[in-house]
């Protein structure tokens, strides 16, 4: 199929340059860094975690009885106590940092790095062809323009997935070799709306990855649109990075001032994990609401990209 061949072309152009390999090297470096930090900072996990959990509950209980502890902190402490109690009741060990799966959990927390890389790739994949002057040769081929553009976006998504899976597998291998599976927990316990839930660690990883991937789909679409619109990757990268990493802060600040429109901004909706293993950052938002908002934005981003690309004269 034509689009598949076009994606193959995009991948060839990506893999024959250094950029992606440098990104992979940086991902390896970040895993190693996490490993070093884990080895240096955290003490090895206790032999008897139940005893530790029991101690923690007792200490937290003391804290709860103290005066002058703010309410928000108390809520958190209460949640922590509930989780500990749940673990004791159901015999589920915590996900220690120095176990294979605990390490994976730590590493995938650093996947913001991949989002950064994907923003860079997505913001350049169209504009660089203009800069290289190769867009002329590409668009005078008997291929519909939308197919060219679609294959570029799909190639971004494909490589985002590749990097994400690479990170996960690398973390798993390193974790397994360095820490092994002794004492590792296969169940993940979390609190949502005051109720304790339990799930397989792998489900937790999968959902985390999926939620992260959806976030990447969105920010990549945004970067893609800006770069197609202005043929300028620097602008697209700067704008996307700003939104990706300052977006949630901006969202909370606006929410603090009681701005109602906040929940309609796309970047406060990209973190779907907040609904699954926690509670939404802004009251009244639901996962269904966020998915609809994301869909609408996605259609707008793609629509703008395809319309401008289709119409534009190539000089």
């Amino acid at each position: 199929m034509q689009v598949l061949r076009l994606i193959q072309n995009e991948n060839m152009k990506l893999y024959k340059r250094k950029m992606l390999w440098i990104m992979l090297a940086l991902i390896v470096a970040s895993v190693i860094l996490t490993l070093v930090i884990t080895l240096k900072t955290s003490d090895s996990h206790p032999d008897n975690w139940k005893q530790t959990a029991q101690q923690e509950i007792t200490e937290n209980q003391k804290l709860m009885n103290q005066k002058g502890v703010p309410k928000a902190a108390k809520d958190q402490i209460a949640a922590q106590m509930k989780v500990d109690q749940y673990r004791l009741d159901h015999n589920i060990a915590p996900l220690f940092d120095d176990t294979a799966l605990g390490f994976v959990d730590n590493v995938i927390g650093t996947s913001g790095l991949i989002t950064l890389f994907i923003i860079i790739i997505s913001a350049s994949i169209v504009s660089q062809e203009y800069a290289w002057g190769t867009m002329k040769l590409v668009l005078m081929r008997p291929v519909q323009r939308w197919k060219v553009l679609l294959s570029k976006y799909l190639s971004v998504l494909f490589n985002a997935l590749l990097l994400l899976v690479f990170l996960g597998i690398l973390a798993f291998i390193v974790g397994a070799i360095v820490f092994g599976f002794k004492d590792t927990s296969f169940q993940y316990v979390y609190e949502r709306n005051g109720i304790i839930h339990q799930t397989s660690v792998f489900t937790h990883f999968f959902l985390f990855g999926l939620s992260h991937y959806i976030g990447m789909i969105m920010i990549a679409a945004f970067a893609f649109m800006v770069s197609t619109l202005f043929k300028n990757n620097a602008l697209a990268i700067a704008l996307s990075i700003f939104i990706e990493f300052a977006g949630s802060i901006i969202g909370s600040v606006l929410a603090m001032f009681g701005k109602n429109y906040v929940k309609y901004l796309f970047f406060v909706n990209t973190d779907l994990m907040q609904y699954i293993e926690g509670s939404p950052s802004i009251k009244g938002m639901t996962i269904g609401f966020s998915i609809i908002i994301l869909l609408v934005y996605f259609i707008i981003f793609m629509g703008v990209s395809f319309l401008t690309f289709e119409k534009r004269d190539v000089a």
Binding site: Q8, W132, G133
Partner: peptide, 26 residues
């Protein structure tokens, strides 16, 4: 055709450039 300068992908070999453009058609 070629319009204005024959700009190709500099980081690819001549062969890979031809592969690229041929693959667009079939």
């Amino acid at each position: 055709g070629i319009i204005e300068n024959p700009e190709m992908y500099k980081f690819l070999s001549g062969y890979d450039n031809l592969v690229h453009f041929q693959r667009m058609n079939g």
